[in-house]
Simulated scan of single mutants.
Amino acid sequence: MRLVASPQHPLSRLPSVNRDDLAQYTQVCLTHIQDDKLVSEALFSANYLGFTMFEVIRDAVINGTGWALLPHPLVKEALESDQLCSLNHDLALESHYYRYVESENLGVVATALLNKVARFLGNSQ
């Protein structure tokens, strides 16, 4: 997982960020339904914008909406092309789990995506 923001975002100009810095700006975070309630995974900011897809979160961050914690495979190209910047924070050193929802009948697209993630994670050791 990577803590990222747009290069134009004020957090990107700081040599390191802390909880107070993150709390000042909008966090773009993952949102899901749990027990018929909408739950957002905002970490440090009461000011957040929730989406249900990591890709939408990434695009919002690239557009300067806020900062986010995103899976490295999803932001790798944007980091390499300077569309995103990694933020220097202790949070970047913590482990985070990938999650996905699976049904009994995986479609062609879901199977291809799961295989692609598995290959990426297998090659990045």
Score class of each variant (00 low, 15 high):
residue 2 R to T: 07
residue 3 L to D: 00
residue 4 V to L: 04
residue 9 H to A: 13
residue 14 L to A: 04
residue 15 P to Q: 03
residue 15 P to N: 04
residue 19 R to G: 05
residue 21 D to V: 01
residue 22 L to D: 03
residue 23 A to S: 14
residue 24 Q to E: 14
residue 24 Q to R: 15
residue 25 Y to R: 01
residue 27 Q to K: 02
residue 27 Q to A: 15
residue 30 L to P: 02
residue 30 L to Q: 06
residue 32 H to G: 10
residue 32 H to M: 14
residue 35 D to P: 02
residue 35 D to E: 14
residue 38 L to I: 08
residue 39 V to L: 08
residue 39 V to N: 00
residue 40 S to H: 09
residue 40 S to Q: 10
residue 43 L to T: 12
residue 43 L to H: 14
residue 45 S to N: 03
residue 49 L to I: 05
residue 52 T to H: 11
residue 53 M to H: 15
residue 53 M to E: 05
residue 54 F to C: 10
residue 54 F to E: 11
residue 54 F to D: 10
residue 55 E to H: 10
residue 55 E to K: 11
residue 56 V to L: 14
residue 56 V to W: 05
residue 58 R to T: 00
residue 58 R to E: 00
residue 60 A to L: 07
residue 60 A to V: 01
residue 61 V to K: 02
residue 66 G to F: 05
residue 67 W to K: 15
residue 68 A to K: 13
residue 69 L to C: 13
residue 71 P to M: 02
residue 72 H to A: 13
residue 72 H to M: 11
residue 73 P to Q: 10
residue 73 P to S: 12
residue 76 K to N: 12
residue 77 E to L: 07
residue 77 E to I: 00
residue 80 E to W: 03
residue 81 S to I: 07
residue 81 S to Y: 06
residue 82 D to M: 14
residue 82 D to L: 12
residue 83 Q to G: 00
residue 84 L to Q: 05
residue 85 C to G: 01
residue 86 S to Y: 05
residue 86 S to I: 04
residue 86 S to W: 06
residue 89 H to D: 08
residue 90 D to P: 13
residue 92 A to I: 01
residue 95 S to W: 06
residue 95 S to K: 08
residue 98 Y to N: 05
residue 98 Y to C: 03
residue 98 Y to R: 13
residue 101 V to T: 07
residue 102 E to W: 10
residue 103 S to E: 04
residue 109 V to C: 04
residue 112 A to Q: 06
residue 115 N to H: 10
residue 117 V to F: 11
residue 118 A to M: 05
residue 119 R to P: 03
residue 122 G to T: 04
residue 122 G to A: 11
residue 123 N to C: 05
residue 123 N to Q: 12
residue 123 N to P: 01
residue 124 S to G: 05
residue 125 Q to N: 12
